[in-house]
Design a binder for these strands. Sequence first.
DNA 1: GATCGGGGGTGAAACGATTTAACGCAGGCC
DNA 2: GGCCTGCGTTAAATCGTTTCACCCCCGATC
Lengths: 345, 345
Amino acid sequence: MGSPVSIRDVATRAKVSVGTVSNVLNRPEVVAPATRDRVMGAIEELGFVRNDAARQLRSGTPRAIGLVVLDVGNPFFTDVARGVEDTASEAGHAVILCNSDGSTQRESRHVELLAEQRVHGVLITPVDTDLAAVRRLRERGMSVVLLDHPTADPGLCAVAVDDRAGGEQAVTHLLAEGYERIVMVNGPSHVHQARQRHEGAVDAVRKSGRDAGVLEELKVPALNVVSGQRAAEQLLARSVRPDAVFCANDLLALGLLQVLVRAGVRVPEDIAIVGYDDIDFAAAAAVPLTSVRQPRQLIGRTAAELVIAETMTPGEHEHQHVLFAPELVVRESSRRVQRNRRRPR
Amino acid sequence: MGSPVSIRDVATRAKVSVGTVSNVLNRPEVVAPATRDRVMGAIEELGFVRNDAARQLRSGTPRAIGLVVLDVGNPFFTDVARGVEDTASEAGHAVILCNSDGSTQRESRHVELLAEQRVHGVLITPVDTDLAAVRRLRERGMSVVLLDHPTADPGLCAVAVDDRAGGEQAVTHLLAEGYERIVMVNGPSHVHQARQRHEGAVDAVRKSGRDAGVLEELKVPALNVVSGQRAAEQLLARSVRPDAVFCANDLLALGLLQVLVRAGVRVPEDIAIVGYDDIDFAAAAAVPLTSVRQPRQLIGRTAAELVIAETMTPGEHEHQHVLFAPELVVRESSRRVQRNRRRPR
DNA sequence: GATCGGGGGTGAAACGATTTAACGCAGGCC
DNA sequence: GGCCTGCGTTAAATCGTTTCACCCCCGATC
């Protein structure tokens, strides 16, 4: 039933030694065409499939890489995963997907599993900034690429996007459009992306020469739709509402947008909105959302390439910290439109 | 440094034989507490990690399952994947994620890879209805569970949702709410889900005793947001517009909703909308979307359980075809409301 | 004509775990 | 005392590849 046909069976069938079969598989050029064909024929007839476990055991070179993400449900990570999967599969590698769901416990279980699988390397968005999991991986001798997480550690690669620049772009844009009472709806500050984006926003205000008071930070517990909705309710309850809101990610922005629109607030006439991530749904919102785009798939591809390269040339590999630039995509949710007949400015 | 510490190193360190170390690892109860502690200590000190390749080679039982999906970007599959990952990781299995992206070529490459990895089993949403890839897998002796794909083949497990019932629920609901010019925006008929959902819709009309003319099918090339937007434009151009639209999935519905809302059409007063899948964004839309919910995560969990069970008890396993019932989630986009309801604009 | 060289193969030794038969030993039974 | 039993441990076989040292044969070279 199983696949009980081994390289040895192929060998006897083709009347050659196992070594020759192995050569046909791995270095076809060294074996005479006639025997090569004979072996290939035998492989075909017997339906032989290499056993990767045995291969890996002997050769020591694994053919899989691990990917540990914070939340498979988040379109951001999904797109990153797609990029990883693409290049890995081009290189003939399998991708082992792990979802830490923000839990260090799950994360460490997954890391353990990956270590046992002796994967080529691990791409990980760590749950904690202390990088305990990452350290464990490196102790076990596997190369690690940090995804979307900053580090000063020169001992590992990292691929991220300049969140500070993104925050700055977003707020600079809002200021340029003439908005002057900006609220940034932000995640908890232990999330480094949230911190960075806020710092960028503050930078933008400073560079514009305005008073720091034009920007206010409203913290919410999580970067999801529900938090966005809650934030909107809070803002609606205020006597003085902001004229623009910058959300730390698109999920927040979508939640916010929904509640505002349903409360009769006009976007962007009454309140402008800018999101972050530019997930596909941002463009499909009731009011197409201005957002800061991150090259998600590229992040994944780059990270996969790095980890594959590192294990191809061990020793001489130079760890890199790649930082992509975000790009502001302006859509209707933040365009200054005529309030009455003329542009207020 | 690699992880050059093997079970043998542990053995010498703990002054026992390798067999004993193996016993500590796999059947701790048969070894005397004293030696057990000694061995555990050695493992700890040396930082030993089992080599799964060697394990699998000898024992023949792999610790990974394969998951082949049509599109990692689609929230539907993402949620299924989460379910799979959850139960797999509980059972100590790794999940190898493969994205066929609707291409048979990619699919077969992935299948080949999974075969070489000797995975426990494969959960797959096949690209083609001819199931060539599936056949190849089974020839290689691995168990297969079809995800969201119907089959009469008693030789394999399948987990799906009753699409016909879902289509029927959606349209029955619309009819009950009093809508009488319904358009179903549907995908190409070679997509079996599209076909089934439409059949269900037709059933609903028939059972209600109405004229078949109350339901019209409008086909679009793909089940995505852009197609939904196109469909909306077509409907807007008509002299006689429908009073309700049933979309074959939520992506279509979101695209449609966006264009309608922006054209000043009131939802549901002028046109009601029902989607399918109940992805998280459905509830967060400008007008919360009525949708047919599929137990996505449960699908994943169930499929993973089946494939694990099958390889636990080979031979006596009974292949199952699990069919879940969808559930209509009614939200504002399809509720019959008084026309004079306050609607700020 | 002996030597060299090299293409084409062979065969056995790893790789690192699991598994199993065998073994030593202590105690209990006859 | 001989014998069986059970327990804890050991040593060796095994899984399917890859790799590497070596062999054989034949034509070219000096």
